[in-house]
Amino acid sequence: MTGVTMGTVRDRYRDGVRELGGRQKTSKGAPAYSRWVNRWLGRRFAAAANVAGLTPNAVTGLSALLTFAAIATLATVRPTPLVGVLIGVGLALGYALDAADGQLARLQGTGSRSGEWLDHVVDAIKTASLHLAVLIAAFRYFTIDDAWLLVPLGYSVVSGVFFFTMTLTDQLRRSARGKETQFMAADGSSSTLYSLAVAPTDYGILCLALGLVGWQDVFVPVYTLLFVATAGFVLLALPKWYREIRTLG
């Protein structure tokens, strides 16, 4: 009986992964880590959550728990190499679960405005707090010129603007096209080269970079480069998004 039960569980899991493989959001504009790593992990977490009987909101809660535990650790615990790796793993798993909640909703047919609202609120809190945690950690534990503290402060501003404008632009696109759900893969995809080029703006890459916080001499230049790349992308994207929204009427 146990063998049959385990076989059924495996079949349900595989069926879920297979079904979600054909029901992905468009990869247009998606950077490399989110496109090829995080969505891959998200499908598997979503299929496992479905077998376990979890709701999308429960998965959102697990994502928030891992993410904010990692952010709190970053701000309050001296960043040794082990602590840094744990922070990076916690953020990366939280990000994968963030991808899984929407996929689980599609798999179960339970997508809702309240679920999307909850997901965006968690993302907004994460966006507002993550770089401030880096700022606190650098002030408390780094041996570095005080001028560098402007980097996480600026990164916090850039990330907040990026998240808000990207979310608003997507909502306005969907409203103009009369679609309640986010675009599926049939609506197109970005080239491999583009996904690799915008990889420095990817939250998943930032999670991995934060795993280096225990090695200050490596972390500081990597984090600074990601900030410069993200700021440059936002400066280029804002006028493009504005022109696009104007064409929507």
Rank of each mutant, 00 (worst) to 15 (best):
G178T: 10
S190K: 12
S114T: 14
I144H: 05
G115N: 08
A147G: 06
V157Y: 11
V151H: 02
I136V: 14
A137M: 11
T143Q: 00
A176M: 02
G188M: 01
A147F: 04
V134R: 01
T127Q: 12
L135R: 01
P200L: 00
D123C: 08
G102P: 02
R113L: 12
A176Y: 05
V161C: 07
V122M: 15
S189A: 12
R140L: 08
Q103D: 14
S191C: 05
D170W: 08
S190L: 01
T143G: 00
S159Q: 15
S195T: 05
V161Y: 06
G115C: 15
Y155N: 08
S175R: 13
A133Y: 01
V121A: 12
A186E: 14
S159Y: 06
T169D: 06
S189V: 08
D170A: 09
T169M: 07
K126D: 10
A128S: 15
F183L: 09
W148Q: 02
T169S: 08
H131V: 05
V158L: 11
R177K: 08
G160W: 13
A185L: 11
F163D: 12
S156A: 14
A124T: 13
G160N: 11
L130P: 02
T181M: 10
A197V: 07
T110L: 13
R106A: 09
R106E: 10
A186C: 08
T181V: 12
Q182D: 12
G154T: 00
P152D: 02
I144L: 02
V151L: 03
L132F: 03
D123T: 10
L130T: 14
K179V: 15
V134H: 04
R113M: 04
Q103A: 12
A124F: 08
V157H: 10
T110P: 01
W148G: 01
I125R: 15
P200F: 03
A199V: 04
S159H: 06
Q171F: 01
A186K: 03
V151Q: 03
L107G: 04
S112Y: 04
A147I: 15
D187S: 07
Y194G: 00
W117G: 06
I136L: 07
Q171L: 05
A186R: 03
A133N: 01
L149R: 01
S114C: 13
T167A: 10
W148V: 02
V121P: 12
W117P: 03
A147C: 03
L196N: 10
F139D: 11
H120P: 13
G188R: 02
H131D: 15
I136E: 02
R173N: 10
A138G: 06
A185G: 09
A199E: 09
A185F: 06
A199H: 06
L118A: 13
A199G: 05
A124V: 05
L153G: 08
D119Q: 04
S156W: 09
D146Q: 11
